[in-house]
Nucleic acid binder design. Structure first.
Lengths: 332, 332
DNA sequence: AGCACTTAAGTAACCGGTTACATTGAAAAT
DNA sequence: ATTTTCAATGTAACCGGTTACTTAAGTGCT
C-alpha cells in the first residue's frame, strides 16, 4: 500500500503538492499535476481515509446504532440506510447496543470521532440518555421512530397510536366489536403507544376493553400463530384480529387456516407495516403501511445534511396509511 | 471531545504513560494509574479510534462489500454479518458496488486502510478481478457464495447445482416430468449453475429439455407470480414448478391460487432458501434450505481469524438440505 | 532595470494516538 | 560504598495525511 511519500519521491515534489493535486485545491502547474498523476497511477496510490479523517476532522461516514439486530424492522432499515448512505458517497458504520442502554450509550459516544453524524434507532435508551447524548456529542444525532419531546432533537418518527386507530377504525366501521389484539413487546414505547391506540379506539365507541382478547407477541410470525392458537384454544369469542405487525397477522392467518376458519368470511384480520409478503398471502392482507424505508431514507438524508449545515432542529412525522385488501369484511 | 493531551495535563504525566494505562501495557505505578484513571473519568476521555488505527495499523473493523443492496439475500446477510462482527467486538463498514465491477473493485481497494479484512459478496466481479484483488490487497479477503478456483481464496460457498438437483430429484421421485422452472438473473454464476442443475437432472432421467417451461425471474415474489401467470396464459402443460428461490415459488403459488389451481393436488411447487415465511403459507412450502445466515457467520468468523493469523487458504462449502413440507405430492 | 504582484511549490506544524529508546531513581547485589 | 538491575516515566519519531505560512520564481508595468 503506497503512501503519499511514495508519490512524492516518484514525482519529485512535496507532500503539500501531492495533497493539492489529490484534492484539487490550490494552484498547481499543469506539468506538475501530470507528473503527480502519473506517479499516483503507476503506484496505484489511494489516499488513506483514516489519515485524511484525522487531519480534516471529516470522516464521510455516518454511524447507525440500533438497540438490537434482531429488531423486526432492522433488515429493511439497514438495507435502506446502506443504500442511502452509499448514494451520498458516505460510508456506513453499523453498531448494535445489545439491548443494554449503558452499553449502547457508550457505543454511540465511541462513534464520535469516527462519524460525521449518527442515526439512532433505539428502543432501550431513555429520553434522558438521548438528552445527554445530545449535549455531549459534538456531532448531530438523528433519532428514528421514536417520539421525543418536541423540537428538541432531530427526529423521524411515526404516529404509532394514530396508525392503530386507523386499523381499529376500519374494523369498527365494518361492524366488528369483539376484536382480538396481538401485541408486540410491551417494554418499549412503540408497543405501549399501539396498545393505547387499541384501547382508546374501543373507548371512543364505548366498547368495553376485554383483557382476554389481548395476547402478547414478539413481532415474529410464530408468535402471531401461537397467540391465535391460544385464543382459539381458550374459546374466546371474537370476529376480528388486529396484530401489531403484518408478520404476526400472517401467523394468525395461518393458525386460522389450519383449523379451518375462513378469513375474512368468519374472521377478519388486519396488520400493520405493509410487509412486501402481505399481498401474496391468501387472502391478501389488509394492513396499514408503515413506511420504514422512506423514514430511513429521510433520516439518512437529514443526517447527511446536518454534517455540513447548521443545527436548527428538524423533525419529520410519518402517518400510517390504510391499504385495503382482502382480509377484512363486514361482520355478519 | 477531550484528547490524550487533556488527560496528560490533568494527570500531570506524558502521553506515553496515558497510553500505557489506557492499553494496560508496560509498567505503571499504581498511584499514577489512579491519577490517570480519574483524569480520564472526569474528562470523559475516549481514545480516538481513528488515531489508534492510524498508529497501530489495526482498525478492528471489517468491511462488507456487496454488488448491490437490492440483492435478495442482502437483508439477512447484512443482519448476520452485523451481529457476528459485533459479537467479536469488530465494527462493520458496509459498501455496495452499484453492480459495476470496476466501481466495486475500487471500493474494495479503498477499504484497505480502513479494515482488517473484507468480506465480498459479489455477483459482478469476475474471477480475474478477484484474483487481482487478492494479489494487491494487504488484507485478507473472504469471498462468500461464489465458486472459485479451488484453494486459491478464502471462501464460503454453496453447492448451487447440487441444491437444484436435490429439488429436481424430489420432484422426479414424485413422478413429475413436466417441470416448469422459474429462474433468477442469468447474468451471474448462481443463476447459471442452478439452471445447469435443472438441465442435468432432466438429462440424467432422459427427460427432454423444453425451453417453454423455463421463465426468467428476478428473485422477487412478483416475478414468480408473473412467470407463473405467463405459463398458465401460454397454455403450457406442467405438473410441477421449481423456482430459484422461495419468494418466487410463493409468488407462483399465489398465481395458481388466484386462478383456482390447487397446490399440491394439481401442481407441485418447490423453492430454495427456506425463507422464514415459507412455512406460513398454505400449503407450507417444500424447499431446500440455503443456510445464508450460517454461511455469513462462518465468513465473518473466518475474516476475523484471518485478521490476526496466518494465511493458509480456508474454504467452506455448504450443501442444500431438502425440507419436505406440503407443496409437493406425487403426480397422478 | 526595478518594483509590485501573482503563481507554484516547499516547510513545518498539526490531527491523536503508539512505541522504541533514553533517562531517572531506588532497590538489590557485591 | 559502589555497581548492577530494574521499575517507572519521559522523549521523540512515527502513522499518513492537510494546511497556514513562507519562499522562490515568473510576469507585467512603468
Amino acid at each position: 500500500m503506497s503512501t503519499i511519500l511514495d508519490v512524492c519521491k516518484l514525482a519529485g515534489v512535496s507532500k503539500a503538492t501531492v495533497s493539492r493535486v489529490v484534492n484539487g485545491t490550490g494552484q498547481v502547474k499543469e506539468s506538475t499535476r501530470e507528473k503527480v498523476f502519473s506517479a499516483m497511477q503507476s503506484l496505484g496510490y489511494r489516499p488513506n481515509r483514516l489519515a485524511q479523517a484525522l487531519a480534516t476532522n471529516k470522516t464521510h461516514t455516518i454511524g447507525l446504532v440500533v438497540s438490537d439486530f434482531d429488531g423486526i424492522h432492522f433488515g429493511s432499515l439497514l438495507k435502506q440506510a446502506a443504500a442511502s448512505a452509499e448514494f451520498a458517497k458516505k460510508q456506513l458504520i453499523v453498531t448494535d447496543g445489545h439491548n443494554d442502554p449503558n452499553y449502547e450509550y457508550e457505543m454511540i459516544m465511541q462513534l464520535e470521532a469516527q462519524c460525521d453524524a449518527v442515526i439512532l434507532y433505539s428502543r432501550t435508551l431513555t429520553d434522558d440518555h438521548i438528552q445527554r447524548l445530545h449535549q455531549q456529542l459534538t456531532i448531530p444525532i438523528v433519532v428514528i421512530n421514536r417520539d421525543l419531546p418536541e423540537q428538541l432533537f432531530h427526529s423521524v418518527s411515526f404516529q404509532q397510536e394514530d396508525a392503530v386507530k386507523l386499523m381499529m377504525g376500519h374494523l369498527l366501521d365494518n361492524g366488528h366489536r369483539q376484536i382480538a389484539c396481538i401485541t408486540g413487546h410491551m417494554m418499549n414505547p412503540t408497543g405501549v403507544a399501539r396498545l393505547n391506540g387499541y384501547k382508546h379506539s374501543l373507548a371512543e365507541l364505548g366498547v368495553e376493553f376485554n383483557e382476554k382478547l389481548v395476547r402478547n407477541g414478539d413481532y415474529h410470525m410464530k408468535s402471531g400463530y401461537q397467540a391465535c392458537k391460544e385464543l382459539i384454544h381458550d374459546g374466546i369469542s371474537f370476529t376480528a384480529i388486529i396484530a401489531f405487525n403484518d408478520c404476526m397477522a400472517l401467523g394468525a392467518l395461518r393458525a386460522l387456516t389450519e383449523v379451518g376458519i375462513k378469513v375474512p368470511e368468519q374472521i377478519s384480520i388486519i396488520g400493520i407495516d405493509d410487509d412486501p409478503v402481505s399481498e401474496f398471502f391468501t387472502p391478501r392482507l389488509t394492513t396499514v403501511k408503515l413506511p420504514i424505508a422512506d423514514m430511513t431514507k429521510q433520516a439518512v438524508e437529514l443526517a447527511i445534511t446536518l454534517c455540513d449545515e447548521t443545527k436548527a432542529t428538524h423533525s419529520y412525522q410519518y402517518k400510517g396509511q390504510l391499504i385495503e385488501r382482502e382480509s377484512v369484511m363486514p361482520v355478519k
